[in-house]
Nucleic acid binder design. Structure first.
Lengths: 187, 187
DNA sequence: CCCTTTTGGTTAATGGCGTTAGCCAAAAGC
DNA sequence: GCTTTTGGCTAACGCCATTAACCAAAAGGG
């Protein structure tokens, strides 16, 4: 029996890719084992179990999402930065629905949890975007939550086919960015 | 063996209640059977299976949600109507997380699907709320999607403990309503 | 370079879940 | 009152996550 040369990072990355393909709910230890070319119990040599796998996928996803938005925002400020961040967020969620789903409902175990680091980087990027609007300090937290709700809500609803009727979805998203921008500029 | 006097509506309603208590993902046929006082296979006399149960819970939830928001909005217009609708939405999602989760990712099978009726009633209520803002017709669809994204995003993030840091969450939601109202009034 | 230890794979088994089949008594209808 | 439908039951199957026990391959130290 030749070894498969597997390691934790490979297992997690393959799990993330598979979750994107078939949906997080359908990511099974059996299908993941088959994908990496190994029998199911072997996965437990690299990962604690399904829960642990989920947390690691979430950590990976948050890091990638923070990277993607951070990169997208570079060189922009104000409305352009807001638009770049929002578009990058939606693109990530639509291209990686399984990864993104893994980040929901998972709480960091402590302040040293690498997942918390990803969350913080993501938050910092959005905070930087808001800096261009020179908001009152008392508004910043609320504005952050508003942006997060808008982006999360729009992207997950679109991913769940929650927008049934006619109008063009991309157009709606651009409209929504403009709406948020106008509101933030007139605070 | 005395009969349990069960019927479909009872099974679905109990399933919805149980989903709210333990989370939709933890709603198991076994636990539901126990709750209604019957062995697991007996449930299949009233419901097609887990998928069918989920659809029926979703249908119930959409109907209840449409009722709740419709009632909350009565007698109000403009900003007051918007606030009432948004608060009713969030309250419903927080009080009935399992029911609401059941509505996501379930597509109506056809135009006669009773679930589609609930969706439409919900949509109509929000459309009525927007009427108070006298929007340009070309803006209505986008504004509806914006409101839906905001309410859905905020409520589900709060439900998933997605808001970790300090500021008061109720205050953020009121801020968000005010933000949306201001934006809609200045279109 | 062999001998030992760690590592990463295996098969077998357990227990929980959804679901189906087949049975049988209670209710409903003629 | 007899027949049919209905709503419960037990038994069984297959899938899934997980654990235990085992064993070969790599790694590493004399």
């Amino acid at each position: 029996m030749p070894r498969a040369g597997l390691d934790r990072a490979t297992v997690v990355a393959t799990g993330a890719a598979l979750a994107d393909e078939v949906g997080l709910a359908n990511l099974t230890m059996g299908s993941l084992a088959e994908r990496v070319g190994v029998r199911t119990p072997s996965l437990y040599k690299h990962v604690g179990g399904q829960d642990d796998l989920n947390r690691r996928i979430a950590t990976l996803a948050l890091s990638e999402l923070a990277d993607a938005i951070g990169t997208a925002v570079q060189g922009y400020a104000g409305r352009d930065a807001l638009a770049a961040a929002a578009r990058a967020f939606r693109t990530f969620v639509l291209e990686h629905p399984g990864r993104y789903a893994a980040t929901l409902g998972v709480e960091p175990s402590g302040p040293n949890d690498p997942m918390a680091l990803g969350s913080r980087r993501l938050l910092d990027t959005f905070t930087a975007v808001l800096r261009g609007y020179h908001l009152d300090v008392s508004d910043v937290d609320h504005a952050l939550r508003m942006l997060r709700s808008l982006c999360h809500g729009f992207a997950t609803l679109q991913g769940a086919n929650g927008f049934q009727w006619s109008a063009d979805i991309d157009e709606s998203f651009e409209w929504l960015i403009a709406f948020a921008d106008r509101g933030l500029r007139t605070l």
